[in-house]
Simulated scan of single mutants.
Amino acid sequence: MQGTTILFSEMTPPPGQEAGFHDWYDTEHIPLRMAVPGFVSARRYRDTAEGAGGFLAVYEMDAPGVLASEAYAGVKNRPTEATRNMLGSVSGFTRYIGQEIAVRRRTEGDAASALEAPLLYAVWFNVPAERCGEFDAWYEQDHVPLLMEAPEWLMVRRFRVTDADPLPYNRLALHYLSDGSALTSPAREKARATPWRAKLAAEPWFKGTYGVFEAIRPRQRPPVT
């Protein structure tokens, strides 16, 4: 159920068209992709920011080449009329492809339950190439261990972003939370107050973008054959 590559995609339906958007997404958009070899699962979320109105889908794939396959091209390049109409009406579109570079779980080996977390906290950075080594080391050695002191922090996955639209991020962290209280916990305050973080935060590029997403649908998987 957990792949090594993700597709992180957001869309905002037009006002008054949410029901049709959800029906299209649940019964056509995701099922067509779940039939493509290499897609492992997909889950949908709602952006919790006030007034956002956007929805997120995170697709799990077993390799980055899935999106370059003939099977995927057949789905993407031959859209149905419903898909053409819907994609022509949505806004707030984002598309980030990430390859997993690190993962830490509260219970090692228990990927399935962590993936079912009700909240997803996403953090993007655009890190200069020459600073990626230290940034990654800080995140793995200093930041994540302290965050995981909060019992609500179930898993942290980090990705190298290989395709970014619309903003040029090259690092994405997905934090799987059992409860939003993790974001105001002493563990997070501690993680954000270390000397190593303060050193990086003083650099002009250290400006993260953050989003909190609430799961709205069960995870979809490929059909059983």
Rank of each mutant, 00 (worst) to 15 (best):
F125Y: 14
F125N: 12
F125D: 07
F125G: 05
F125Q: 14
N126G: 05
N126E: 11
V127I: 14
V127Y: 08
P128S: 04
P128C: 07
P128G: 11
P128K: 08
A129F: 14
A129Q: 14
A129V: 15
A129C: 08
A129S: 15
E130L: 11
E130W: 04
E130R: 14
E130M: 09
E130I: 06
R131V: 01
R131G: 03
R131L: 07
C132W: 11
C132K: 15
C132H: 10
G133A: 15
G133K: 04
E134M: 08
E134R: 12
E134A: 06
E134L: 04
E134F: 04
D136N: 12
D136W: 00
D136F: 03
D136Y: 05
A137Q: 00
A137P: 01
W138V: 01
W138N: 03
Y139H: 04
Y139T: 01
Y139D: 03
E140Q: 11
E140T: 00
E140F: 00
E140W: 02
E140A: 07
Q141S: 02
Q141N: 03
Q141D: 00
Q141E: 00
Q141W: 01
Q141I: 01
Q141M: 02
Q141P: 01
D142H: 01
D142Q: 03
D142T: 08
D142I: 05
H143Y: 14
H143M: 09
H143S: 09
H143F: 13
H143P: 11
H143G: 02
H143A: 06
H143Q: 12
V144F: 07
V144R: 10
V144T: 13
P145A: 09
P145V: 06
L146Y: 09
L146N: 03
L146C: 05
L146T: 10
L146V: 07
L146P: 01
L146R: 14
L147T: 12
L147Y: 08
L147Q: 13
L147M: 15
M148H: 08
M148T: 09
M148P: 07
E149L: 13
E149A: 14
E149K: 15
E149I: 04
A150S: 15
A150R: 07
A150M: 03
A150T: 13
P151G: 10
P151Y: 07
P151C: 06
P151V: 10
P151D: 13
P151T: 05
E152L: 05
E152D: 12
W153N: 14
W153C: 14
W153V: 15
W153G: 08
W153P: 01
L154R: 09
L154P: 00
L154E: 08
L154N: 02
L154K: 04
M155N: 04
R157S: 10
R157V: 05
R157F: 02
R157C: 08
R158C: 10
R158D: 03
R158W: 01
